[in-house]
Nucleic acid binder design. Structure first.
Lengths: 181, 181
DNA sequence: AACAACATGTAACCGGTTACATGATTGA
DNA sequence: TCAATCATGTAACCGGTTACATGTTGTT
């Protein structure tokens, strides 16, 4: 049995929550997981095809008054694969953060303060997005999305505050040395 | 002028701190930036070659009693490119976190608690690594590496504590409901 | 009539990881 | 002499992003 691809993992999980079209999967990922797991059409559609061919997912043309779309749902084999992945040890978080790299290469306290302010703004932006989607997460019965959201929100708020506080401290210090008196 | 590749960014920054061989760049990245920016030999050596060809970097065979190695240093053009990148707006952080995805798909409070414990362990591990390298960062004159490290350390400790606290809370609650009395 | 949103896909490109291949030097 | 570390690189593979291509349905 081959390992699930990264995109397969998010697709199977989403389909267990609710049978969906590729388009809907993309919309949900953008809204609810994009701050820790992304997927584009260029990954989703080919992966859905592979999952159908592997028998983990089943696609039925949505009939009735609906728009033409392919509703995908997990097969029993798909459910087993999903559970198997969920039972295993998750890989550690992978981060790529250009703001941190700027900060790392800073040579003066002014550089540090600037990098910190830019990072604070980036974390603020993500936190705002998470605040927007919080009501939707609260209205679900499943506990996962809301805990995830709160963890993300608190993490980004913490990082934002840390950066702001440290930037302010550095500017306070430089003022002491720069003063006219 | 083409954009700097991701690996070029970390290489140029490292070379400004200290002229180095590809091997040394890799060692520094593994030790000091790997928790927010990685690079392997398979990226570093080809990129060093491209940077030499583009005239941003200059490679001199290290002479003297040294081992045979190619010491790379920034050219004036390389310094300008580095500064230009440093002056621009950094891209936002990109994260891929399988633990968060497990958490997101959790269907019961027991699933949530388990996912949180695994995440706490992952953050603990990263925090431990950062604690190990803290003394080295403290001994530098440049301020960048130490602030970066402290931000990373506090972020991972915060996430670790958050996950632990919430996991404990959930288990406390289930005990109330599961009690024999 | 026009625009936004719904809906599905492919192809080219880019860049990162992994495995492979090689060889010198240093210390136990 | 043997293992670890220093040191440099290439090739195959994998997977993600971006741009392209197309057509429908609902709203203004």
């Amino acid at each position: 049995v081959p390992e699930l691809s990264p995109t397969a993992k998010v697709i199977l999980g989403v389909l267990r929550m609710r049978p969906s079209s590729g388009y809907e999967i993309k919309a949900l990922v953008d809204k609810a997981t994009s701050y820790f797991w992304r997927a584009g059409y260029g990954s989703i559609y080919p992966e859905l095809k592979r999952l159908r061919e592997a028998g983990l997912v089943e696609g039925t043309e949505a009939d009735a008054g609906d728009r033409r779309r392919v509703l995908h749902r997990l097969t029993p084999a798909g459910e087993r694969e999903l559970e198997r992945w969920l039972e295993g040890e998750p890989e550690g978080p992978e981060l790529r953060d250009e703001g941190m790299l700027h900060l790392f290469f800073s040579e003066s306290e002014a550089d540090v303060a600037r990098a910190l302010e830019q990072m604070a703004a980036a974390h603020e932006e993500i936190a705002s997005h998470l605040e927007e989607i919080e009501p939707a997460a609260k209205s679900l019965e499943r506990p996962g999305p809301l805990v995830t959201l709160r963890l993300g929100l608190d993490n980004h708020r913490f990082a934002r505050d840390w950066c702001r506080r440290e930037a302010a401290r550095l500017q306070g210090e430089s003022a002491k040395g720069d003063g006219d008196e």
